[in-house]
Design a protein around this nucleic acid. Structure first.
Lengths: 350, 350
DNA sequence: TTGAAAGCGCTAACAT
DNA sequence: ATGTTAGCGCTTTCAA
């Protein structure tokens, strides 16, 4: 209060028209001089709007999560929202409730749940949710009739990867899967199997890794033991594929001459593996962006008609040296991108 | 108000002792039934404490930042703080002011600034800071007499990497540097040069990349053009080293037989490059953790004695195939870790 | 064009 | 052991 009432100051800050230019100037001068910053906290209290989104994350150490977070922060920024971040352990369903409660206590206007689905962890969370909560969007998890979800078409991408191996003439096609109970891992394995079934080709050997390069490295011997004739391999992520490439090189196994390899993720680095990696690219950044848009859309509609949407994003195959384009139709094109079929559905309820 | 006053409810929620067991139970029952969640916003307002830290990040797409964020969220969680996240473009000094103002408006109790120093961007920020602001800790930037900083000993790590190349008998040692104006890139280059100076060895050729694998790939030819006799190379980060490895393989250049390569970062994947990569590991997770501790420490001391600390964290050399341990003293040990000298100083002012 | 009053949801201090 | 009063910093409503 340097001459005028708090009211007038409020009007100046919010750029209301009904302030005399003179008063406005003097108030602005004082604000600049004192370095005064209006309290968003107090504002939130009266508006009952925090302009903040809650984000629950797991496995920032895995490739992709950072990219998704990138998309989230960008889109949130663009929509004038802040991001309140909570990181949890990948499989820690126990501690999820306090995390959600923390976010609700801070009155976030929506929650983006970017935790990979392992077993039934998502169902567990959904079951434990407080009766009253802001809209929640689940990323990378199975569709639900009560919550919006945005998924990536893992099965479709896997199918496309496997089809590519078949097209290039491979017939003993194995799979290096992700860890047990991860839905993403299961979906990719399902897609691999479906593509083989479609083609009437007997499924090759399956081994399981834990997403790490080390586990990929270790898997090669196991797979070759199961089938020494192995000539194609669909690997559930790029990091494991890197390990495999390394192990193959050590054992003098030619990639792709002996075994063609397709990865999954779309690491930029894949282009510089030795040999460069054919892989399925996930639109992870887009996943984050859409998550933010969806949760804001849900938050801004009236309470009555709770709308729910389930989206599935398509992947894209990038062909490189580790599983080149078959020469029959055209010469191998490095980095050629082939979009998988997209699928998107919308479900309204109530 | 379901029988009692708001005051009593407050007491129950905060677990105060002076509530009769009977009242407590009935209040708890109502809370459970209604799914009531106390508003942290209102609490912040009255306490003038938000229990929230602001984090400004850039380049989440680069390796390492995710790891640092990991450390930050973990430590914040452990200290019962929330994290309000803002991501900016790497070199965007213009938009930093609104970001800081946003965080101050939300009354964060401290700010962790995890943006790599490019040119004088840090100085710019410091100059533009509002007169009154919560404590700010700058990560990975040069020391300051007015703000706490936590850095990584890039020069020391680079020195150690280069010394390792010298020890293994290399004499034409080049450097693939990071992009211009990045302090981290400059420090690493300085360390490389210093090690050569110490040994009285003429510096080899220098090329510049942009941290990406692609730029590493492209740099090999340039370096060989500058010096066809090149037999050792210190690369400013692991991703560029990956590209180099790939390019060398394509040209039939033996690593390490023709050229020994040492990277910088400590990507886990480096162990599975072909050949596996000798590299300098940065304690990035620790960087984030220490940042949080430091900013909380600064926030919780009285206004009067503003204390400032500047810390430098040591790196560690991991020896792998791309630049093995010289055979003269002992056989190459894969993954052998050698700690660099640490340096840490504390400065109090006022 | 400006100010006064009331209240957002909570807690500290005091009173009962 | 519980209630009352006041106020955190802002905005909305109404009055001047």
């Amino acid at each position: 209060m340097c001459g005028v009432s708090t009211q007038t100051v409020s009007r100046v800050i919010n750029g209301r028209p009904d302030v005399s230019p003179e008063t406005r100037r003097s108030v602005e001068a004082v604000i600049a001089a004192t370095g005064f910053q209006p309290s968003a906290v107090a504002r939130s209290l009266v508006h009952r709007r925090s302009q903040t989104l809650g984000v629950v994350l797991a496995g920032l150490r895995y490739f992709g999560v950072a990219q998704t977070l990138n998309g989230i922060t960008d889109e949130a920024q663009a929509s004038d929202y802040g991001v309140l971040l909570k990181e949890i352990d990948t499989d820690d369903t126990v501690n999820i409730v306090p995390v959600i409660e923390f976010l609700i206590a801070h009155r976030v206007e929506g929650i983006i749940f970017a935790v990979p689905q392992i077993g039934t962890n998502i169902a567990t969370v959904r079951a434990q949710l407080p009766t009253t909560s802001p809209p929640i969007v689940f990323l990378k998890s199975e569709a639900s009739s009560t919550f919006s979800t945005i998924a990536i078409d893992n099965a479709g991408g896997a199918r496309q990867a496997t089809a590519h191996l078949l097209t290039s003439g491979r017939r003993r096609i194995g799979h290096l899967a992700g860890p047990p109970r991860w839905k993403e891992a299961d979906d990719r394995q399902d897609g691999w199997r479906a593509a083989l079934d479609d083609a009437g080709v007997e499924p090759g050997p399956v081994a399981q890794g834990n997403w790490s390069s080390a586990s990929g490295s270790a898997a090669l011997d196991r797979l070759l033991e199961l089938d020494p004739e192995l000539d194609g391999l669909f690997v559930a992520n790029d990091q494991m594929a890197l390990g495999l490439l390394h192990a193959a090189h050590e054992r003098g196994i030619g990639i792709p001459s002996d075994i063609a390899i397709v990865g999954f993720d779309g690491l930029d680095e894949g282009a510089h593996f030795t040999p460069s990696l054919t892989t399925v690219v996930q639109p992870l950044r887009e996943l984050g962006e859409l998550g933010v848009r969806e949760v804001i859309a849900r938050a801004s509609e009236e309470q009555g008609k709770a709308m729910v949407r389930s989206l599935t994003l398509a992947t894209e195959l990038v062909v490189r040296e580790s599983a080149p384009q078959p020469a029959v139709t055209e010469p191998a094109v490095t980095g050629k991108r082939i979009a998988a079929t997209a699928s998107a559905e919308t479900v309204d309820i109530r």
